[in-house]
């Protein structure tokens, strides 16, 4: 992939939730960049802050959550300095977002055609006739058969996969520069997931938009992304291009995650998987030092006391670890 100019630059983002029981640092100093036309995979398990990070970019964080620090530079301007009105214009036109559950994002009492048309009319100066034409074009673009007929259907008449296509059509309606996909294929069946991923790849190639691809599924990232950020407890622990992350994972967490997924290649079925021990720490009681140290097989005294910095260990490959894993990852996957 050729180096292109930076589209989105998230710097030291901190989004905290101030609850009755204490402060949850959902996103705690995340930094990442997305160039034009790049697909960045943001992976992690529940509670790693990946969804809150995306909501922070859109400024859709709701109380008790609050962005307390950081910059979100989009096309050279800090989104955190925008007024709510300016943000509203950016959302849906320059940055679009699709979610896991398309049913809750679609209004059940309007036809899908109406809803896409509305999105177009809000952001673009088009006549109703033109908007309708554009809507049908979009429905065709996302692979919905018989778009003229589907235009008049209600969300409940469509299957989960079709609804997700409608959401993508709506997201694509204003040719966004950045598409945020938050677990958009998680609720779908494998064969339908394959269709949607293919569609997203295809649209990305055709339009050159950038995608922030958020998921818990490492395999999807391997397939979709150019670069990958692995998040754990609100911090990025490893960051690099997709080959670095999957072929030479250096953080013990990334390494452990990749090893613990059952592989389709291995002959050693019915044997124990190399699982990561323990579980994600309680957000109210983060361990001192490196947050991964209680589960890490390589943890030392230093890891229990100090939080390592995200440091570059080879060009473009950043790891937050005092004792990066040295082995190449060949046996797995």
């Amino acid at each position: 992939m050729e180096r292109e100019e930076t589209l989105l630059d998230v710097r030291n983002l901190k989004t905290y939730f101030f609850t009755d029981d204490g402060v949850v640092k959902a996103v705690d100093g995340m930094s990442f960049t997305i160039r034009k036309g790049e697909v960045l995979g943001l992976v992690g398990e529940s509670g790693c802050g990946k969804s809150v990070a995306s909501l922070s970019i859109m400024q859709l964080v709701e109380p008790p959550g609050k962005i307390v620090e950081g910059e979100i530079i989009f096309k050279g301007e800090d989104l955190l300095k925008k007024t709510p009105e300016q943000m509203r214009k950016i959302r849906g036109s320059e940055i679009a977002m699709i979610f896991q559950e398309p049913m809750t994002s679609l209004n059940p009492v309007y036809t899908i055609g109406n809803q896409i048309m509305e999105a177009i009319l809000i952001h673009q100066d088009l006549s109703e006739e033109e908007a309708k034409k554009r809507t049908i074009e979009l429905l065709r673009l996302v692979g919905i058969p018989e778009p003229e007929r589907r235009f008049n259907q209600y969300p409940h008449e469509l299957s989960g996969g079709m609804r997700q296509r409608v959401m993508i059509a709506m997201a694509m309606s204003c040719n966004p520069d950045l598409l945020i996909s938050d677990e958009a294929t998680t609720a779908l069946d494998v064969t339908i997931q394959a269709q949607i991923l293919e569609l997203m790849k295809d649209l990305q190639r055709k339009t050159g938009m950038a995608i922030l691809f958020i998921t818990h599924d490492l395999a999807l990232v391997a397939e979709m992304a150019h670069s990958v950020a692995v998040a754990y407890t609100g911090k990025i622990v490893e960051y690099g291009d997709v080959y670095q992350i999957f072929k030479k994972p250096r953080h013990p967490y990334t390494y452990g995650l990749l090893s613990s997924v059952p592989s389709l290649k291995t002959e050693k079925t019915k044997t124990p998987l190399p699982a990561i021990e323990g579980m994600v720490p309680n957000p109210y009681k983060m361990p001192s030092g490196c947050h991964f140290n209680p589960r890490c097989p390589f943890a030392t005294e230093r890891c229990r006391k100090e939080m390592p910095e995200l440091a570059e260990i080879e060009p473009g490959h950043l790891v937050r670890c005092f004792h990066p894993v040295a082995v190449e990852k060949e046996a797995v996957s």
Binding site: P145, S159, G161, M162, D189, V190, T191, I192, Q193, A194, Q195, L197, E198, D217, L218, A219, L220, V221, A222, E223, V242, Y243, F246, K247, L258, V261, L264, V332, S333
Partner: peptide, 25 residues
Amino acid sequence: QALLSAIPIPDPEIKKERILLQGDI
């Protein structure tokens, strides 16, 4: 065959030829 080919694999070097099923269940 289609189901097996739809499984995503955590390896960026494997670019599979997918058997993409048409339509919904």
